[in-house]
Each structure stands twice: as structure tokens, then as C-alpha cells.
Design a protein around this nucleic acid. Structure first.
Lengths: 335, 335
DNA sequence: CCACGAATTGTAAGCGCTTTCATAAAGGAT
DNA sequence: ATCCTTTATGAAAGCGCTTACAATTCGTGG
């Protein structure tokens, strides 16, 4: 069933059918109805490819996500999808993994589909890595590029992020203020936000003249979903050093630390305070519940889509939208 | 940059360019290289729409997922994406939610993109609901239709699933064998698998002549990610009835029950045994760790894609592939 | 060195839709 | 009723690519 069939059955030209299909106002209500009825009757759907050729925009956005099974990223993708949907845009998702070459392949693939914009979710090592910067430059030279939870100052790239530096600085400060200064810092990524968090933590330590804090900064190099591995990792750390606080760059790391403490008979929060990051559903899955930094994912995704829509509409939009994180206090902290 | 530009620069016809683009073997190696070089040099990517018009298949699969932020579904989507990728297929994802009308809209949308097949993930109320059956029939009359974690006997629809009935029957039986017969059954969906699980549980109760077991079957009607709400829900149940076992149709429900028990000072597993379902990462996020039924998601997704590929290749493929669930015993059970 | 079949390459006809431009119909004013 | 402006419709030219079919070139063997 093509537009020709419909036009024939409706007794009009294909141009008219096309017009009602595209909601043109230059068609008489009567003809419009006549065409619509035929379309309904034969359950006709226009071919997206043919459409894509003629049309300038297909109102689709490409979402590149490192790993959609990651709790945080999955949520981000979900919000983005909803938000785009609500604004009449479709989205096409690619899970790229973390390898830069593969990511580039996906970008080509998605660009060939003539999307209107690209949203990069997770795996944003901008600023950390020169190749990654180049990657962003290459994309943004071809299409509006949106960064979630990261920032890069370059034409045609827009970003929303949480002020992770300050959020982490404050999280660390509140722990220090509670008299805990031997704080284990756990992280598992040197992404843009990962670095911001870490420097925020370090700044708090420095400003408070905490000695040897860097000996308690540990990098976990495994699958963040394998909480068991994380707890084993923390076990081994606990054998080498002692600490009365844990601040983790991701909730799952914090949960791992809580598990480890449980095994070692350490009480939370009496003997150990724990703070996570992302304020994910994991925070409520343990006992006591995990204090965590909310990095405003929902606000970020909302703003990101709004900014993108503005850009596509040719408006002048903010290059960066920064939200403030907030420490959500729960049972794993005494303060 | 179009195929014409390339053909001009390479000094060949567009047909030849098209041939090297499509890896035809009827091109002389020398010409092939010549064209390739130009393509590389100008970083040319063929327009996917134009391509879609001529080409029969674009090697893309549509994935319809109810909610990609759901732990289980997100994982399913992830596996599917990977598996398809590995086989040279792209995937386009739509998050549909649970409303049937909206799902239908998405189907139209995805069909208009001329995908080769459709995979339905989550929100499969087949068998439960006549409208849902019709929905499946409508899809499968147009395109090969794959069901994950559900089954429906109809031409052109293929499915992979876990034998949830038996898995749940055995989970319940092992709890009964351990001497626990007052078992709270928690569920939150009447999906295909949801119903299977429940009937499996009921069958075990019946076969063991457990009196009044149905008074301990409860339906949770909220967001499965809000563990806090779940635990509140279980609190209220505990005020009405008493139980020494919990079997949940989803890990998050089980986690909610564990939290509730913790609040009420009930020890696990001494006073209460808990079994979850899906064997998700949540199982390792609590203390003690959650015993859970593994429903073979990875195997299912693998098989699903293999079946789909077979179907697309015109081979005769199994209409249903059933895997056996397995109870993974951890700390929340005494047996 | 020529003929001839095989291997390459080119030509041109779509694929289904949008959109410009021309044409026809409708509506208003006189 | 007539002429002019406005509005609705149609005809046709692409959009960038694939592919059947025609044309060309290349190798052989005689």
C-alpha cells in the first residue's frame, strides 16, 4: 500500500495525500476527511524511508549509551525516551560499550539515519582524554550534540550536568564535620563526572588538612553490577588500611562496602558511615538505607531535551545547564 | 556527499560504487580499491533512507520494551542488543509503557521503519487478555514476532521462556519441605510469566494440602523500583497475617519483604525464609543475600536472536524454546 | 590476430514520498 | 454576472540508492 493507492482510492492526487499526512493546513477539511477515512480504512502507514528522503527532518534523536543495563544509564535513557516522546520525537538507541573505536562506528551508523541530534549518555571521558575530545568534536561538527552528565566547550555541543565537584565536596565535608576523617574513597570511572567527584573529595580533604587521605582512595576496576566482587574488593582494602567512613562515586560501590562491613562485623552507622552517589533504587535495598547524593538525573534529562528542542528550533540555548546535587541523608550516616 | 559525487571522483558509475558499498563480488579488486579510497578519503556514509528504499532488508530489528528502566527488562534489552549486534543486525528500541493503545502506536511506528523483525520484551499479557492476544496477532501477521519470557501459539510468532511454573513449583516445594508452610506470595504482574509463576506456586500448595494458602497471596500494585513502598506494603500485610516464608515473583518485592522484616525485628533466615525471582543484581545487595530463581535471561535472549536469525534466513525454527529455571540458594533461606 | 564467452562496468528505471510551481476552483467586491 | 484575489489541488521533478539489463572490456584458444 503506497501513497498512490491511497490517492487513487480517495480520488485525489498524491500531493494532497502527502499534505494531509503532514498536517498541512492548505487542504480543505472535506478533502482531508475523505483522505483520512481511506487511510484509516486501509490502515496505511507511510514508508519511513521514502519519507526520510524527501523530508528534511524525521524528528528522531540518536541516543548513544555506553551500557543500558547500568542502573543509572538505564534510568537516564528511560527519562530521555519519555521526554522526547512527549515532544513528538522518536529516539533510536545504540548501546556502544566503552571502546572509542566502536563508539565511532555507532556514530556513523546513527548519522546515516539522518537523526536530528545526538545524545551521549555515559562513557563521557571528555577532558580526560584527548581522543575522546576529538570524538566529540567530530560528532558536533556534523550534528547538534548533547552531553548528559558531562561538559565540553565547543560549538554545537550542549550539556547538562550536576555540580559533582561541589556535591562531593559537601558530602566529604559533612563527614569530616561529624568527626570522621579516615574516609575510604571508592570510584570506578575516570569519566568527566568521575573526575569532578574525585577532585571535589580531594579538595575537601585538602581544605581540612586531612593527612594521608590519598592512601584511602581506591579504584575498583570491575563490573559495577557485581556487588559481590565489590565487597570482596573492599574486604581486601580493609585488611590493609582502616577507615571509619566510606564515600563512593556510585551507589553500587557503597553497597559493596556495606556488605563488606557486615561480613566483618562492623556496625553501620555506629562504626562506619557510608555515602553513595546517584541516589538510585539501590539506596533503599539495604539496611540501613544508604545516604546518597542525588545528582538530579530527572531534571538533567528534562533540561537536556528542552535544550535540544530549542537548538533544533534555531533558538539560542544555554551551552551548559548545571544542577546542584543534594545529599539525601539516610541510615548509613550518623550526621 | 552522495553516491554521485563518489562515482565522479572515482571515475566509475554509481552502480559500481553501490556494488562495492554492498560488497558485491562482481567488482574487480583494482576498481574496488579505487572506490574504497575515495570513500575513505571523503568519509562518505551512504544515506540510510535512500538505501532503505532500494534494499529489501536493512538488517534492523525493532525492540519494544515496556520499561527500559526496569532492572530485568534493561538487562534483557542489553543482551538482545549485544546479540543482534554480534550478528550484524542493528536494533531500534522503543519504550512503550504498559498501555495497549500506546503499544499499538509504537508498533506502527516501528513497522514503518521496515524492520525485519520485532521483539517484544516485557508487558506480555498474552493469554491473560484477549485484546493483548489480538495485538500479537496483528503484529505477527505483518512481521516475524519474537516474544521474550512469554509464549503464544500463532503463525509467525516465536518465543523463548523459562518454565516459570515448574521453577516456582519447586521453589515453593523446597520451602514446604523445609517445614515452612505459611508462605506469603507476593506478585506485581499478571503477565504471561507472572501467571505461570503464580499457578506454579498454587499447585505446590495444593499438592501439599496447605490450608488457606490463598489468604497469603498478595498483589502489589506500585512501582517495583520503589522498594520502600514495597516494604511498607509488606508491613501492612504483616499486621494482618503471619508467615514464616516469603516467595516473590520479582527480586525487588523480596527485597521489600526483607526490609520490612528488618524493621520488625524478624531475623532472616532463622525466623523468615525469603525467595526472590529473576536472580538480579539485587540479590547481592542485601544481607543476607537473597535466594532467587534464575530464569535464564541470557540463554533466553541468545536463543531468541538465534531463532529470529533462522526465521529470517527462511529456516524452520522452534516455535518455543523453554529453559528450566534454577533456584540459586543464598542466605535468605535455611534450606 | 580474431572470435567468443565470461567477467566487469554503465545505463536507466524504479523505490515511495515531499515539494515547487502551475493550474483550477472558490470566494469577494463591484 | 464579471473580474480579481485567495485558496485548494495536481503535475512533475527530484531525494540517494539498488538492480535488471545492456554495453563494454578482458582473456582465451584456435
Amino acid at each position: 500500500m503506497t501513497i498512490y493507492d491511497i490517492s487513487k482510492k480517495a480520488g485525489v492526487s498524491i500531493a494532497t495525500v502527502s499534505r494531509v499526512l503532514n498536517g498541512s493546513d492548505k487542504v480543505r477539511p472535506a478533502t482531508k476527511k475523505k483522505v483520512m477515512d481511506i487511510i484509516e480504512k486501509y490502515d496505511y502507514t507511510p514508508n519511513a524511508f521514502a519519507r526520510g528522503m524527501g523530508l528534511h527532518s524525521l524528528k528522531t534523536i540518536g541516543i548513544l549509551c555506553a551500557d543500558s543495563s547500568d542502573l543509572f544509564l538505564a534510568k537516564a535513557v528511560y527519562y530521555l525516551e519519555q521526554e522526547l516522546q512527549a515532544n513528538g520525537y522518536e529516539s533510536i538507541l545504540c548501546c556502544t560499550g566503552y571502546n572509542l573505536d566502536i563508539k565511532r562506528t555507532y556514530v556513523d551508523l546513527i548519522l546515516s539515519k539522518k537523526v536530528d541530534g545526538i545524545i551521549l549518555v555515559g562513557s563521557n571521558f571528555i577532558g580526560t582524554n584527548e581522543d575522546e575530545n576529538q570524538y566529540i568534536k567530530d560528532i558536533s561538527s556534523q550534528i547538534p550534540t548533547m552531553l548528559l552528565n558531562a561538559a565540553y566547550d565547543y560549538p554545537n555541543v550542549y550539556s547538562t550536568l550536576c555540580d559533582d565537584y561541589t556535591a562531593m565536596y559537601e558530602a566529604a565535608s559533612s563527614m569530616l564535620n561529624a568527626g570522621i576523617s579516615d574516609i575510604l574513597y571508592l570510584y570506578n570511572s575516570d569519566s568527566y563526572s568521575g573526575v569532578k567527584k574525585r577532585t571535589g573529595f580531594i579538595a575537601a580533604m585538602e581544605d581540612n588538612h586531612v593527612p594521608d587521605y590519598e592512601k584511602l582512595i581506591f579504584y575498583y576496576n570491575g563490573d559495577p553490577q557485581r556487588v559481590k566482587d565489590i565487597s570482596t574488593f573492599v574486604d581486601s582494602i580493609a585488611r590493609q588500611v582502616s577507615f571509619h567512613g566510606v564515600i563512593a562515586a556510585d551507589d553500587s560501590l557503597a553497597i559493596g562496602a556495606i556488605k563488606s562491613a557486615g561480613k566483618r562485623g562492623i556496625r553501620i552507622p555506629e562504626d562506619l558511615s557510608v555515602i553513595g552517589y546517584n541516589n538510585s533504587m539501590l539506596t533503599c535495598c539495604c539496611t540501613p538505607e544508604l545516604t546518597s547524593v542525588d545528582n538530579r538525573l530527572e531534571s538533567q534529562t528534562h533540561q537536556l531535551v528542552q535544550t535540544l528542542l530549542g537548538v533544533l528550533a534555531g533558538e539560542e540555548m544555554p551551552k551548559q545547564s548545571v544542577f546542584s546535587g543534594k545529599l539525601i541523608k539516610r541510615g548509613t550516616t550518623i550526621f
